[in-house]
C-alpha cells in the first residue's frame, strides 16, 4: 500500500510538470493553430538560466526562478517573432518543420554555451516536511510541484475567462478575422500567448530539474514530447484537458514504472495515448469538430 501510494504521489508530481508544459502547448495551439515543438527546449533553457543564476551569480532561489521566467518569456516572444510570425500565411507543414528546426537550434545552442556534460541542478525547494509525509514517499519537491501546478491552473483559468486580454485570446482562437474587426491586435495577442506559455515552461523546467537534478541540452525534449502527448490526450486546445491529460499521464507512467517495468514505461504511456485516440479522436475533453469540405 505504501508502495502504491508513493508511486501515485510521484506520478501526480511528475504529471503536474507535464501539465504545466502541456498548458503552453495547448494555449499556443488554440490561438496559433500550430504545434510548437520547440516548447520542450524552452524548459531546458529555463533550467540552465536558473542554474546559472544560482551557481554563478549566487542569487536566491526565488530570484533565480523569476530570472528564468523572464529569460524564457523573452525567448518565447523572440522565437515567435523571428521564426513563426513570417509563416502566418504558410502551410502547417512549413510551420511544423520550422518548429522542429527551432528545437534543434536551441539544443545545439545550449550545448555550445553550457557544454554537453550534464550539470547537477540544486533544488530550489527548501522545505522540511514532517516525518509522517516523507515516510509515504512525499518529497518537498513533489509537494511544491503539485501546489504550483494547481495555482497556475486556477490562475490561468481565471485569466482566460475573466480578464479582457484572456477573452481577446479566446476570441482570436475562434475567429481571427472577426477578432480584428473588434479592434483586437491578433499578432500581439499571439505574442502574449507565447510569452505566457514560455514563462510557464521556465517554471516547469525549474521544478523538473529540482526533482530530477540532471541538466543537459536534451533535458527538455522527452518531457516536451510527453507533455505534447498529455495535451493531445486531454484534448488539444483545451486548458482543463491539458491539466487532466498531464496528471493522468504522470500517474500512468509512474505506476507502469513501479509495477511493470521501467524500460517499458514510455511504451505503455504512448500505447495508452493510441488507445484513447482510437476511442476519442479529439482527446478526453476535446470537442470533435468535423472539417467542412
Amino acid at each position: 500500500m505504501t508502495f502504491f501510494l508513493s508511486c501515485l504521489i510521484s506520478g501526480i508530481s511528475l504529471g503536474s510538470v507535464y501539465a504545466i508544459i502541456a498548458l503552453g502547448y495547448t494555449m499556443v495551439y488554440g490561438i496559433a493553430k500550430m504545434l510548437n515543438f520547440a516548447h520542450g527546449d524552452v524548459i531546458m533553457v529555463g533550467g540552465y538560466v536558473c542554474y546559472c543564476a544560482l551557481n554563478y551569480l549566487g542569487l536566491p532561489s526565488l530570484v533565480s526562478v523569476l530570472l528564468a521566467m523572464a529569460a524564457c518569456t523573452a525567448l518565447g516572444i523572440l522565437i515567435e517573432g523571428l521564426a513563426y510570425k513570417p509563416l502566418r500565411q504558410a502551410g502547417s507543414l512549413a510551420v511544423l518543420i520550422t518548429a522542429i528546426g527551432v528545437s534543434y537550434f536551441l539544443q545545439n545552442a545550449a550545448q555550445l554555451i553550457w557544454g554537453a556534460t550534464p550539470k547537477t541542478f540544486t533544488s530550489v525547494v527548501h522545505i522540511e516536511l514532517p516525518q509522517t509525509l516523507t515516510n509515504v514517499g512525499v518529497s518537498s519537491e513533489a509537494l511544491v510541484t503539485v501546489l504550483v501546478c494547481v495555482v497556475i491552473m486556477v490562475g490561468l483559468t481565471l485569466f482566460i475567462n475573466k480578464s479582457k486580454l484572456g477573452k481577446a485570446m479566446r476570441a482570436c482562437s475562434e475567429d481571427k478575422g472577426a477578432a480584428q474587426l473588434m479592434g483586437i491586435n491578433v499578432n500581439r495577442t499571439i505574442s502574449v500567448t507565447f510569452a505566457i506559455g514560455s514563462a510557464l515552461a521556465a517554471v516547469a523546467g525549474v521544478l523538473l530539474c529540482s526533482s530530477f537534478p540532471i541538466l543537459q541540452p536534451t533535458t527538455g525534449s522527452m518531457p516536451g514530447i510527453k507533455a505534447f502527448t498529455a495535451a493531445v490526450f486531454g484534448g488539444i486546445g483545451s486548458i482543463p484537458g491539458a491539466f487532466l491529460g498531464g496528471i493522468l499521464l504522470g500517474i500512468i507512467e509512474s505506476l507502469a514504472k513501479g509495477y511493470i517495468s521501467t524500460d517499458l514505461a514510455n511504451a505503455i504511456v504512448f500505447a495508452v495515448l493510441i488507445v484513447v485516440l482510437l476511442v476519442r479522436p479529439a482527446g478526453l475533453l476535446g470537442k470533435y469538430v468535423p472539417e467542412k469540405v
Binding site: 477573452k167 479566446r170 475562434e174 477578432a179 474587426l181 473588434m182 479592434g183 491586435n185
Partner: peptide
C-alpha cells in the same frame, strides 16, 4: 483592420461570425 475600430468604423461581417464559444455578454464586451 484592428486600428480602424477606434477611428469609428465597425463592420458586421457576412455570416455573422459571432464568437460561438463565448457568452452573449462576452461577445458584446469584445
Amino acid at each position: 483592420a484592428h486600428k480602424l475600430v477606434a477611428k469609428g468604423l465597425a463592420q458586421v461581417p457576412e455570416g455573422r461570425r459571432v464568437f460561438l464559444q463565448m457568452t452573449v455578454e462576452e461577445n458584446l464586451e469584445m
